[in-house]
């Protein structure tokens, strides 16, 4: 029984199976080989691009420029440091490198105002020097709609959104024309009135989504989401006016910014 049936069965089947497995094994190694080639190409690219970035950082004056509205300005922060100051603390801890901040934000600014400001050319020098430009705009465009009634709200929102998108595109283009290398970061909007009217949140989400489309289609332009960060922490992260972020709120945004652009 053993010699006649089982033994030949075992020999033949193990031989055939071994051949199949070796074949499959070779294929999977091949599959990964094509990957490996890609990998080396990729890593070479990244090696080439890395020194460029590194070289930029110390030679340029390592400026941080903040453009935009009250959130960029830092209203609500008890220590009056805002996103820029807090972000600077985070990175100087890590790099021991001195950076300077210029805050050109003006509270109450809407996107159209920002376009005017940039077109006026008064910030051209700081834009061209900056290594990191933090943009915070749109909150006031959207907040104006607070006073619309529910009938006209949708229409007004669409109009505001279209204008805002145009303005944001212009701002991006202008900044890029002056400084093509700087890292840009856009501070997304959070919802300061979460529980009251959940249906209004959809407007905000659409707004953020459209912003994101513009931001992410530009090179070196990071979108910093804040909606999720603030959603369940409004008590801690909003200042006493229940609209602007508190010190903690700014800290969280700064940490998010650091996490997204520096890792």
């Amino acid at each position: 029984m053993f010699k006649k049936v089982i033994w030949p069965l075992i020999v033949v089947s193990s031989l055939v199976l071994s051949i199949i497995f070796i074949g499959g094994f070779a294929t999977s190694v091949n599959v990964s080989k094509s990957e490996e080639e890609n990998e080396t190409e990729k890593s070479m690219e990244s090696i080439q691009s890395l020194p460029g970035e590194k070289a930029n950082m110390p030679t340029d004056s390592s400026e941080i420029l903040i453009l935009g509205d009250s959130i960029g300005f830092g209203i609500g922060d008890e220590e009056e440091r805002g996103i820029g100051g807090r972000y600077l603390d985070l990175i100087t801890k890590e790099e021991d490198e001195e950076k300077t901040i210029k805050n050109s934000s003006i509270p109450g600014y809407e996107s159209a105002d920002l376009v005017k400001l940039i077109k006026s050319g008064e910030n051209n020098a700081s834009i061209s020097e900056a290594n990191l430009i933090i943009l915070s705009i749109g909150g006031n465009d959207l907040n104006r709609l607070e006073y619309e009634d529910s009938v006209t709200l949708t229409l007004a929102f669409q109009e505001a959104l279209t204008n805002y998108k145009e303005n944001l595109a212009i701002v991006t283009k202008e900044i890029r024309a002056i400084n093509p290398d700087a890292q840009l970061a856009f501070i997304g909007l959070y919802n300061p009135y979460s529980e009251e009217e959940p249906e209004k949140a959809t407007f905000l989400l659409e707004w953020n989504y459209e912003t994101r489309l513009i931001v992410n289609s530009t090179v070196k332009f990071a979108y910093i989401p804040t909606y999720e960060l603030f959603e369940y922490h409004l008590d801690e992260y909003l200042s006493v006016d229940e609209f602007h972020p508190s010190g903690m709120g700014y800290q969280v945004i700064a940490e998010q910014l650091n996490k997204i652009i520096n890792n």
Binding site: L17, I20, F21, I22, G23, G24, F25, T27, S28, V31
Partner: peptide
């Protein structure tokens, strides 16, 4: 087949 070849190895 690929997965089982890896398992075999």
């Amino acid at each position: 087949l690929l997965i089982y070849s890896l398992l075999w190895f």
